[in-house]
């Protein structure tokens, strides 16, 4: 009776089978409209807090090691959230890693010089990919001062990676140790740094103030590498290219 809520099993292949009766759809619409009205009413009738945590953050900003308050929150005041977020990305990466079917001795990247990517692809590769990587590096660096940071940088570099590895010329070996190391280095460095600074300051993830900006940049760089690799893996796993290399080689 309840088993097929959210989606019907057949509808994954044949969406037309998942259509709800109009009466139920209208009922859902009315209920959700009522819910939203109630929520908006609650917003209007309730006074917003006067300043949130803005004052608290800005009063401590000079101790955080960075000038951008959002980066300070993400990588210093609430760095523990970011650590768990990197762990969430690792889960998805583990699921999408192809099953181990080939030997581990293969190198991380394989180049097929003979393959011809075509004019458009080769010029995109030549101009866009390096630009994306440099922009990624800039994003990472500028995160300390203005909007930017590990995720934005990782997304740009992953874009370059997608451009490179959807090309026939280059293939990435997702079963190599190096690839798994790239996926987990973000979490690894985050935990190790947290532990290392605790030896100095006594609290997990509490950076010595003098080195805070350097440690933040270090952790962010490792996180960028993992984020970029994970996003690349997500794309390749869902888009379904690279099957050949990883299953039959």
């Amino acid at each position: 009776m309840f088993k097929e809520i959210i989606f019907k099993e057949d509808a994954i292949n044949k969406p037309e089978k998942g259509r709800l009766p109009t009466s139920i759809a209208v009922l859902c619409g009315v209920t959700i409209l009522a819910l939203c009205t109630l929520l908006v009413g609650a917003l209007i009738s309730t006074q917003r807090h006067s300043e949130g945590l803005q004052q608290v953050v800005s009063s401590m900003l000079n101790k955080s090691g960075v000038e951008n308050p959002v980066t300070a929150v993400l990588l210093n005041f609430r760095s523990y959230d970011t650590l768990l977020e990197i762990a969430v990305l690792l889960i998805v990466a583990i699921v999408m890693l192809p099953q181990a079917t080939v030997s581990k001795s293969l190198s991380l990247i394989r180049v097929q010089q003979s393959a011809d990517p075509g004019l458009i692809m080769s010029s995109l590769l030549r101009f866009l990919a390096p630009t994306l990587i440099i922009m990624g590096g800039y994003m990472l660096w500028t995160g300390a001062y203005s909007p930017g940071g590990a995720f934005q940088a990782g997304a740009l570099i992953a874009g370059a990676g997608i451009l490179i590895f959807t090309n026939v010329q280059y293939q990435v070996n997702m079963q190599s140790f190096a690839f798994r190391a790239l996926l987990s280095i973000g979490l690894c460095i985050f935990i190790l740094s947290g532990f290392a600074v605790a030896l100095q300051t006594g609290q997990f993830l509490e950076y010595p103030q003098k080195y805070a900006s350097a440690i933040i940049l270090f952790i962010e760089t490792a996180a960028t590498v993992s984020i970029a690799t994970t996003l690349l893996l997500l794309y390749l796993a869902v888009a379904g290219t690279q099957e050949e290399f990883n299953h039959d080689a």
């Binding site: 949130g52 803005q54 308050p69 959002v70 929150v73 993400l74 889960i91 940071g149």
Partner: peptide, 29 residues
């Protein structure tokens, strides 16, 4: 006053988590 950075940080964390959830769902499909 300046915008409160804590919700901005929450949104950034939320985006990453949303990416992870979406990718997992697409992969399962």
């Amino acid at each position: 006053i300046d915008a409160d950075p804590v919700p901005h940080a929450m949104v950034l964390t939320g985006i990453v988590v949303a990416v992870a959830g979406t990718a997992l769902a697409l992969f399962l499909v």
